[in-house]
Each structure stands twice: as C-alpha cells, then as structure tokens.
Amino acid sequence: MLNKIKTFWRLVRRLSGDDAYEQYLKRYALHHQTDNGDDCQPPLSKADFFRQWQDEKWNGIKRCC
C-alpha cells in the first residue's frame, strides 16, 4: 500500500514538473560522466533551470478546447 502511494506521489510530481530539476540533474550526470572536455559546463542552479524550463514549456499550442 505504502509503495502504491509512493508510486502515485512520484507520478504526481513527474506530471506537474515538481521533480523536473531532479530529472535534469540525473540526466546531466548521465551525459557528463563520460566526456571530460573543456566545454563541459557546470549544471544550472535550480532557479535558472526552472526559469528556462517554464518559459519553454508554455510555448506553442498546449491547451485545447
């Protein structure tokens, strides 16, 4: 039961974008563990990431009748 609630809560967080920054960091770690070149930028701060994410998400046709 507790597991189900946890899964549901994770779904809610994922759907709403509440965990978007965590996903971003996870992805960042995954993609930056192999390349050690100089072009590697440090990850964005939470506020900066959220700003970009939000501006992008509400661009284009996202809502219908």
Binding site: S16, G17, D18, A20, Y21, K46, A47, F50, R51, Q54
Partner: peptide, 11 residues
C-alpha cells in the same frame, strides 16, 4: 511563488 520565492516548487 514558484518563480522567485521558492523556485521550482510547483506543487
């Protein structure tokens, strides 16, 4: 709230 006070705390 979600932009400046607690950035990213959507829920």
């Amino acid at each position: 709230y979600m932009r400046y006070f607690r950035p990213g705390q959507v829920l």
